[in-house]
C-alpha cells in the first residue's frame, strides 16, 4: 500500500512539477525569485563564517581598520600557532574528546538497554517506568544545576572527569528514540526468534540491533554532537585546563583576549568549530535522520 502511495506520489511529481513546488515557483518569475532567495540565504549563512575564517588569518593591524578588509593580505597563519601556544589548546581538545567519548558511549548504551527493556521485555509497571523516564525531558538542565553542583562539590568531584560526565549520563531522549525504533520492528521476526529459543539478550544482540543500525547511528551522531557542544555543566565544573573542554577553554581565551586581540580568538573559534563541522559534512544525512525521526515520534 505504501509502495503504491510512494509510486503515485513520484509520478505526480514527475508529471506535475507543481506537486513539488507547492505554492511558489510556478513559471520563470517564480523560479527567478526562488534562485534570488536562495542566493540571499546562502550569503546570510556563509558571509559571517567567511568573515570569521578570514579574520583568523589576518595580522592585528589588518583587523583593526576601517573600512574592513575582506581578504587576509598579508596572509598570517601565526594566529593559529599563537592561540595553541597561549592556551593549553591540546589539553582542552583532549578533555573534549574524553568527555564526549564517555558521555556519549554511556548514553548510547543506556538508551539502548532501557529502550529494549521498555519495548520487548515483559514485566509489570513497564508503561509507568516509561513515563517516568520520558518526563525527564521536560526538566531543563538549568533548573537542576544548583543542586547538582552542591552534590558533586560535596563528593569532591569538581575539576574531575567523573564530576562532569556522570551527571550528564542519564538519557530520556535516547530511551525514547530507541524504544520507538524497537517497537517499529516487524512483530513476526521477533516472535520467530523467540520461537527459535533465542534468549532476551541474544534477541537484542542478534536480531534487534542488526535491524536497528540506521536509527542507532543517527541517535549516536546526535548524542556525540550534543555532548561535544555541551557548555554550562562542564563550565561550572572546570576551573582550568585539567578538565575544561574546548568550548570552555575558548571563553577563557575570550576573557583575556576578546575585543582587544580578535585574530587568535577567531583562530581558536575556527579550531573549535572545525571537528564538528567536518563530522557534519560527512554524515549529515544520518544526523538529520536522527533529528527528524525524533520529531516524527515525539
Amino acid at each position: 500500500m505504501s509502495a503504491i502511495a510512494r509510486l503515485s506520489r513520484t509520478n505526480g511529481r514527475a508529471g506535475m512539477p507543481s506537486a513539488e513546488s507547492g505554492i511558489q515557483g510556478r513559471g520563470p518569475v517564480g523560479k527567478a525569485f526562488g534562485y534570488a532567495a536562495m542566493v540571499l540565504v546562502l550569503l546570510i549563512i556563509a558571509v559571517p563564517l567567511f568573515w570569521i575564517v578570514v579574520t583568523s588569518f589576518k595580522r592585528q593591524e589588518n583587523i583593526y581598520v576601517r573600512p574592513a578588509e575582506y581578504l587576509p593580505i598579508p596572509f598570517h597563519p601565526e594566529n593559529y600557532s599563537e592561540v595553541t601556544s597561549r592556551i593549553p589548546f591540546s589539553a582542552y581538545f583532549r578533555n573534549s574528546v574524553i568527555i564526549t567519548f564517555f558521555t556519549a558511549s554511556i548514553k548510547i548504551v543506556l538508551g539502548v538497554l532501557s529502550a529494549y527493556a521498555l519495548s520487548l521485555l515483559r514485566f509489570p509497571g513497564r508503561n509507568l517506568l516509561f513515563v517516568v523516564i520520558l518526563a525527564a525531558l521536560m526538566v531543563p538542565n538549568q533548573i537542576t544545576v544548583i543542586s547538582n553542583f552542591a552534590l558533586v562539590a560535596q563528593l569532591g568531584w569538581r575539576n574531575t572527569f567523573q564530576g562532569i560526565i556522570i551527571p550528564l549520563c542519564g538519557t530520556a531522549f535516547g530511551t525514547f528514540l530507541m524504544r520507538n525504533q524497537f517497537l517499529s520492528l516487524p512483530h513476526e521476526i521477533i516472535e520467530a526468534a523467540r520461537m527459535d529459543g533465542a534468549g532476551p539478550l541474544k534477541l537484542l544482540w542478534r536480531v534487534v540491533m542488526p535491524l536497528s543500525w540506521p536509527t542507532l547511528v543517527a541517535f549516536s551522531l546526535i548524542t556525540v554532537v550534543n555532548e561535544w557542544n555541551e557548555y554550562l555543566w562542564p563550565f561550572l565544573m572546570s576551573d582550568d585546563a585539567r578538565t575544561a573542554p574546548l568550548q570552555v577553554g575558548l571563553t577563557f581565551l575570550q576573557n583575556n583576549d576578546g575585543v582587544t586581540n580578535w585574530g587568535p580568538v577567531m583562530a581558536g573559534t575556527v579550531l573549535t568549530i572545525l571537528p564538528v563541522l567536518l563530522l557534519f559534512l560527512v554524515l549529515q544525512r544520518q544526523m538529520i535522520k536522527g533529528l527528524t525521526s525524533g520529531a516524527v515520534k515525539s
Binding site: M38, V41, L42, I45, A46, P48, W51, I52, T55, V225, W228, N229, Y231, L246, Q247, V248, L250, T251, Q254, G258, V259, W262, V265, M266, G268, T269, T272, I273, V276, L277, L279, F280, L281, Q284, M287, I288
Partner: peptide, 23 residues
C-alpha cells in the same frame, strides 16, 4: 543550500557566541 542552512545548528553555541561577538 540545505546543508548550509543546517550547518550552524551543529556548531557549539559558545563558539558561535564568541565569533558573532566579533561579527
Amino acid at each position: 543550500v540545505r546543508s548550509m542552512v543546517f550547518a550552524p545548528f551543529v556548531i557549539s553555541g559558545a563558539a558561535i557566541g564568541v565569533a558573532f561577538q566579533f561579527v
